[in-house]
Design a protein around this nucleic acid. Structure first.
Lengths: 249, 249
DNA sequence: GTAATAGTGTCTCTAAGACACTATTAC
DNA sequence: GTAATAGTGTCTTAGAGACACTATTAC
């Protein structure tokens, strides 16, 4: 709790005298807001807490950094995502970090929020965990009572996803490849809560050269004319369009 | 270090049995990359570490969260900024969080990086601190050996500043109000490392209605015709233009 | 008058918006 | 043929880019 006052004469000597347990303790966690589309509707993965604290409430998958398992924050978020979904192809990005004295009754708590995007898979059967994991329609999750400040975290991830959909191709990470341009457009429309003009959408996507054509076909259950099928090109998630879709907010 | 296995029957009982010191310890810090313009050149505020660890190296202002002083992360960053500059009008935003096992030799360390923008003030005379604080031209700071991974943090804040300059009016927070449109344009040009066409710049800024005219005058040392003077309107930092300045990167 | 800086008029260019049109498939 | 979906042609519109022009100040 107190700052070291003793004077040291070298870095090495200083480190010998340092004991981390002499200082304030913190709860250090990562939480992941994992999104997917089920029948063109945005869903979020929540887990039901099987034990205290906040037993019985729905929460974002996440938890303490484990110093033995996690080399860094990103690894910790990856670990949580893999444990919950078992999916290997996905997009994962840091959103922001929440830290304050009151968000967790156990102490000063800090949580780094990640946003994960994956194509839909049924939730892994609760293997070694007592926790129940379930995809919820986002709008329904919004109406739930959630653990801690997880609703605020989920909403911030949702806002990031909406904002970035306006000038990137992030929504493609919610689709199982290969997908058609119509499917992709519908994903954009769901995420941005608007309609997009078909010609504008296709012009933009095709001019940017972010997708690779992988044949022709129909999306499952589709009717009508065959459509070109695409998969993401590598690195395309980093593309930022000069102009956003939609009008001034 | 171990997860609680004992079964509790209520939240209250669980909390009674919980001791934060039983778990992994972390170094929890905030660091602030504070930028300003001196004669139209981007500068960053660095402090010279007066004691171990990393004694003698230049670092971003920052340090441990103090549970007694800081209600939350943002407060902690504000405290650091005030301690170092004494300035009251500024922009402060979270950039991202770096956490890994190796960035600090004392243990698993997590640092939330903030970006601060202020009009230029001479650095506060090192009041109660042994640390020396100094504005460095950004390009010069880039060539320095810096403490820990602070150079990476500084660069990430710089990138955020450059990116947001393309579609917001953030650079105005680097200028002392009132300022002229020409001064503001020069700030944009310095931050984005490009030139902007004068008419395009004025059209955009004036159409967005983000500035309030506060008379006419000359910037200090200026020659030529009188210019309109402006100050930021409240909330204008949240405006995002639909289209970015400059071409596709 | 000149030098310097502020500010405008106006044409071009890019990319989005609107919307009607044609093309291909299953039945 | 019809229904359904894929994909195109082309005109309009918003806003950036280019650049020449006028306006106001100090000297």
């Amino acid at each position: 709790m107190t700052t070291q006052q003793k004077k040291y004469t070298s870095e090495k000597e200083y480190l010998k005298g340092y004991d981390i347990k002499d200082y304030d303790s913190f709860l250090v966690t990562v939480d992941v807001s994992i999104f997917t589309l089920v029948d063109n509707e945005l869903h979020v993965l929540l887990v039901k807490r099987g034990d205290y604290p906040q037993k019985g409430k729905w929460a974002l998958p996440g938890g303490f950094i484990q110093q033995g398992k996690d080399k860094n924050l990103h690894d910790a978020a990856l670990r949580k995502l893999l444990e919950k979904t078992g999916v290997k192809t996905f997009h994962l990005e840091q959103v922001s970090t929440f830290g304050d004295a009151k968000r967790d009754p156990r102490g000063w708590s800090i949580s780094t929020l990640y946003m994960g995007l994956i194509p839909h898979v049924p939730t892994a059967e609760t293997s070694d965990s007592i926790e129940e994991a379930k995809w919820w329609p986002y709008e329904e999750a919004l109406r739930k009572k959630m653990a801690y400040d997880h609703k605020k975290l989920m909403q911030e991830a949702r806002e990031r996803l909406k904002a970035k959909s306006g000038y990137t191709v992030l929504p493609m990470y919610l689709l199982k490849a290969p997908f058609t341009l119509t499917q992709l457009q519908q994903a954009f429309e769901e995420l941005m809560d608007t309609t997009i003009e078909k010609k504008s959408f296709r012009r933009r996507i095709q001019a940017a050269d972010l997708l690779e054509e992988v044949g022709e076909g129909l999306p499952e259950g589709g009717r009508g004319r065959m459509a070109a099928l695409f998969k993401p090109k590598k690195g395309s998630c980093r593309h930022a369009f000069v102009r956003r879709f939609g009008s001034e907010e």
